[in-house]
Design a protein around this nucleic acid. Structure first.
Length: 425
RNA sequence: GGAGAGAUGGCUGAGCGGCCGAAAGCGCCGCAUUGCUAAUGCGGUGACGGGGUCACUCCCGUCCUCGGGUUCAAAUCCCGAUCUCUCCGCCA
């Protein structure tokens, strides 16, 4: 949620920022509503004050056996006026909130202005794309030939967009997430969290998925429970409506969860293999930070996520997303894209974002500095580290051998009973 | 799923329809006292919104889980929801 006082003070700045984000918003209309709202509110409060002054007087007179009918009449009149004004105030407040909840975050100043992913900037690369002396296969063929990846039967169970993995391939995934969680908890200073996969609508409002991105989500609407699209949702909402102590920050959480996405806007895209799934597993990093620390934390998360790819020996590049490609709630985002030599594509395996105080305002995440001043909104950040399916894709394609077997990356071997390769049985 | 009990400030815990933003204690902050520490004394100590101000002080409103209702007046009475606890049943 944007700071209302910023919209009042710097409407042009906000207008330009929203435009860069690809958002059309009538800020003048918002400001007019806001002005009306405050006017009505002031009137209403003045009436309340008058009424509050009259009440004890009525009590006093009644107890003393005096006539209080003049005061009673005035109160009655005030109340009838308040009824109408109160309804107007509620309507205005509701309309303002509705607009505010649908306005995206503004991008940071150093984010390149652009409309599509073509305008994202490649800011770093790591590793050399592997060359093969044989025809490298795509993961769907590798998985199929191994008999360990079965899209047909997955579709039988759940329709398109789901995967079914067997034996060592399933084990590979389990090894991956265990490895990632161990790395982040032992070496990167994160606390592991096991969180719910179903959350209330209000929780999704806190992180910004609702109300605007409802079409992206699976929901059990009878219960107002929704399947999380990312662990960001439960982890960022853990401290909702809390005021933390300065000494508590930064808080670093990591969580492994399934993620559920309808991919409503991407129907028909990436239909082969494991690249775009309605359900996938992901290890997520979430940080609550003081505002002055959030830039450094963003780079820290990025480094933590890159470490996973480096340790797995997977070549990747780092993108700084342009304004138009930066998501609704984010202020600045880096994507990590890993190279998949079989399908010859860069695949996004991580998205690392800072949200500034945008989510904090929505979710009521605050902290108080030493010395007991006013509570301030803190900053939230998160990054995937990493999303499983595309990492599996990249491992299969990068570590494939001519005979169709797959070498197991060194760091995963302790997690797979020291297995060194995956081959058809 | 059935029966019952409860929800008050950072915490514990009082609270008669008006004198309650809320006693008391703890904690915390400041000051005093004291070789140091401890102890003691005095004072202070919530959030949100609006107005005002260069800024602080300040003024008004709202908030005793949440939402409705009764009343001139609600922490207090009524209704509903949520959550917590206890017992019974069922269950991975």
């Amino acid at each position: 949620m944007l700071d209302v006082s910023l919209i009042r003070r710097e409407p042009d700045l906000v207008r330009r920022g929203l435009e860069a984000k690809g958002e059309v918003a009538d800020i003048d209309w918002f400001l007019q509503l806001d002005k009306d709202y405050r006017k009505v509110l002031t009137e209403l409060e003045q009436m309340r004050a008058r009424q509050n002054a009259l009440s004890p007087e009525i009590g006093r007179k009644k107890r003393a056996g005096e006539d209080a009918s003049a005061e009673l009449d005035e109160v009655a009149e005030l109340k009838s006026k308040q009824k109408h004004l109160g309804e107007r105030k509620d309507t205005l407040a509701h309309d303002l909130k509705k607009i505010l909840m649908r306005l995206p975050n503004l991008a940071a100043d150093d984010v390149p202005v652009g409309h599509t992913d073509a305008e994202n900037e490649i800011v770093d690369t790591w590793g050399e794309p592997r060359t093969f002396e044989f025809d490298a296969k795509a993961h769907w063929d590798l998985g199929d030939d191994l008999g360990l990846l079965d899209s047909q039967r997955a579709a039988k169970l759940s329709g398109a967009g789901f995967s079914l993995m067997f034996g060592p391939l399933a084990q590979l995934e389990r090894a991956l997430w265990n490895y990632m969680l161990d790395l982040h908890t032992r070496e990167h200073g994160f606390q592991e969290v096991a969180a719910p996969y179903l959350v209330l609508g209000s929780t999704l409002e806190g992180t910004g998925q609702l109300p605007k991105l409802e079409a992206e989500m699976y929901g059990c609407k009878d219960d107002d429970l929704w399947l999380i699209p990312t662990a960001e949702v439960p982890l960022t909402n853990i401290h909702r409506k809390e005021i933390l102590a300065e000494a508590d920050l930064p808080i670093r959480y990591t969580g492994f969860t399934p993620c559920f996405r309808r991919e409503a806007g991407a129907a028909g895209a990436d239909t082969r293999g494991l690249i775009r799934m309605h359900q996938f597993h992901k290890v997520e990093l979430v940080v609550y930070a003081k505002p002055e620390d959030s830039d450094a934390e963003l780079l820290r998360i990025r480094r933590n996520a890159e470490t996973v790819l480096q340790n797995l020996g997977l070549p990747y590049r780092v993108l700084l997303l342009c304004t138009g490609d930066t998501s609704f709630a984010a202020r600045k985002t880096f994507d990590l894209e890993v190279w998949a030599p079989g399908c010859e594509r860069w695949l996004e395996v991580s998205s690392i974002s800072t949200f500034g105080d945008f989510q904090a305002r929505r979710a009521g995440l605050r902290f108080r500095r030493e010395g007991g001043k006013k509570p301030e909104y803190l900053h939230t950040l998160n990054g995937s580290a990493l999303a499983m399916p595309r990492v599996i894709v990249s491992i299969l394609e990068n570590y494939q051998r001519e005979d169709g077997s797959i070498e197991v990356p060194d760091v995963l071997r302790p997690y797979m009973g020291w297995r060194t390769e995956i081959r058809a049985s």
